[in-house]
C-alpha cells in the first residue's frame, strides 16, 4: 500500500514538473496533456496501439527485474532483444507449417537470447567481470552484428529500407487493430516470472541470493547458479521482446535503421523501476510507458515540438523510477561485500 501511495505521489510530481517545462516553453500544459491522453487512450484504435507498444517493454522489463532480484544490474536486454528479433526474422527463411512456424521462431529466438546471456554469466562467475561492463559490450556487438545482417543479408530485394517480411504463418494473429496475440505471450511470461520467483524453490533462491548473498551462501544456496538462472531467463524474455516486434507488429520485418526495435532493452529498465521490479508491477509500468510513448507520438503529429515531448516524457519517467532506483542503491551497498562470495 505504501508503495502504491509513493508511486502516485511521484506520478503527480512528475506531471507537475512536466507541466512547468511546457509552461516555460510557452505551451498550455493541460491541453497538451489532454492531447497526450486522448492520443494514447482516446479511442479503441489508440488503445490497441498503446497496448501493442507496451508488450515488448513488459518483456525487457522482466529481464532487468529478474536480474535485480538475483542481485545483478543486467542491462543486456538491448542486445538480447536485437538478436532475438533477427533470429525470429531469419526463421522466415525456413519452410514450416503455419503456427508451428511461429512456435519454432519463438523457441529459436529464446535460445539466441540465452546464448547472448551465457557469456555474461560465465565471465562474471569465473573471472569476476562486472555484468554492467560485459552487457554493454555485448549490446554493441549485437547492435553491429544485427545491423550487418539486416542490411547485407536479410534486406528486401525491392524495398531497401527494410528486411523481407515474415510469412503470414509465422505471425501472431491479430486481435484488433495493432494488437496481436503477442499480448498473451507477454502476459503469460510476466505471470510465469511472478510464479517462478515466489512459488518455486529456484525463484526463492534467486531472491535470497539477491537480497543477502552471504546469508544465502551460508544456507547452502549457490549464488552462482541463482545468478546464472536469472541471466538466462532474462535472456529469453528480452529475445522475445525483439521477436514480437517482428512477429507481432507491423511491418513484420526489421527496418534498416533498426528503428522499429528502438531502445526497447533500455526502456525496459525504466519500466522495471516504475514497476518496482515486480512482474505484476511491470505490467502496469509498461502500460504507463506505452501510454506516454504513443501519446507523445500523437502529440508530435499535432505540431508540438518533439524535443519538448521527450523532455516531459523523460521527466515523468525519471520521477516514477526514482524511488525504486534509490532503494536499489541502498540495497547494493551491503551487496558490495558479497562480491567475494559471487566470484
Amino acid at each position: 500500500m505504501k508503495r502504491v501511495a509513493e508511486t502516485l505521489t511521484v506520478l503527480v510530481l512528475g506531471i507537475l514538473v512536466g507541466a512547468l517545462v511546457m509552461a516555460l516553453w510557452g505551451r498550455d500544459p493541460w491541453s497538451s496533456y489532454a492531447s497526450l491522453l486522448s492520443g494514447a487512450l482516446g479511442n479503441t484504435r489508440a488503445l490497441m496501439s498503446t497496448l501493442s507498444r507496451s508488450l515488448g517493454l513488459v518483456l525487457t522489463g522482466l529481464t532487468f527485474a529478474v536480474g535485480v532480484r538475483a542481485g545483478l544490474f543486467n542491462i543486456g536486454a538491448q542486445g538480447q532483444m536485437l538478436l532475438g528479433a533477427v533470429v525470429a526474422l531469419s526463421c522466415g527463411l525456413l519452410r514450416l507449417p503455419p503456427g508451428l512456424h511461429l512456435v519454432a521462431a519463438l523457441a529459436l529466438s529464446g535460445l539466441a537470447g540465452m546464448a547472448w546471456a551465457l557469456p555474461v554469466a560465465a565471465l562474471k562467475l569465473t573471472r569476476g567481470v562486472n555484468e554492467v561492463i560485459s552487457t554493454i559490450m555485448l549490446n554493441w556487438v549485437a547492435h553491429w552484428l544485427v545491423l550487418y545482417l539486416v542490411i547485407q543479408k536479410l534486406s528486401d530485394p525491392i524495398l531497401g529500407q527494410r528486411t523481407f517480411t515474415v510469412p503470414p504463418g509465422m505471425r501472431f494473429p491479430v486481435i484488433r487493430g495493432e494488437l496481436t496475440w503477442a499480448l498473451v505471450l507477454a502476459l503469460a511470461t510476466a505471470l510465469f516470472f511472478w510464479w517462478f520467483l515466489w512459488h518455486h524453490a529456484k525463484g526463492y533462491e534467486i531472491r535470497a541470493a539477491g537480497l543477502n548473498p552471504r546469508a544465502a551462501t551460508a544456507a547452502g544456496i549457490s549464488v552462482k547458479k541463482a545468478m546464472t538462472t536469472a541471466l538466462l531467463l532474462g535472456g529469453v524474455a528480452a529475445a522475445w521482446a525483439g521477436a514480437i516486434q517482428v512477429l507481432g507488429r507491423f511491418p513484420y520485418a526489421i527496418t534498416s535503421d533498426l528503428a522499429n526495435l528502438g531502445n526497447l532493452g533500455f526502456d525496459g529498465i525504466a519500466v522495471a523501476l516504475i514497476g518496482r521490479n515486480h512482474p505484476l508491477g511491470i505490467l502496469a509500468g509498461a502500460f504507463f510507458f506505452g501510454t506516454l510513448a504513443t501519446g507523445a507520438a500523437k502529440m508530435g503529429l499535432r505540431g508540438i515540438p518533439i524535443d519538448m515531448i521527450y523532455i516531459v516524457q523523460g521527466v515523468i519517467v525519471v520521477f516514477m523510477a526514482a524511488p525504486e532506483a534509490l532503494r536499489l542503491v541502498r540495497l547494493r551497498r551491503p551487496a558490495a561485500k558479497a562480491k567475494e562470495v559471487a566470484r
Binding site: 526463492y204 543477502n212 546469508a215 551460508a218 544456507a219
Partner: peptide, 24 residues
C-alpha cells in the same frame, strides 16, 4: 552465525521465508 543480520537472516524476507532458509 555471529552476524545475525549479515549471515543468519534475510532482513527483507518475512518470518516464514526466513524460517525455511537452508532447509527448503
Amino acid at each position: 552465525p555471529e552476524d545475525r543480520h549479515g549471515m543468519g537472516l534475510i532482513l527483507e524476507f518475512n518470518l516464514a521465508e526466513n524460517a525455511i532458509l537452508g532447509r527448503l
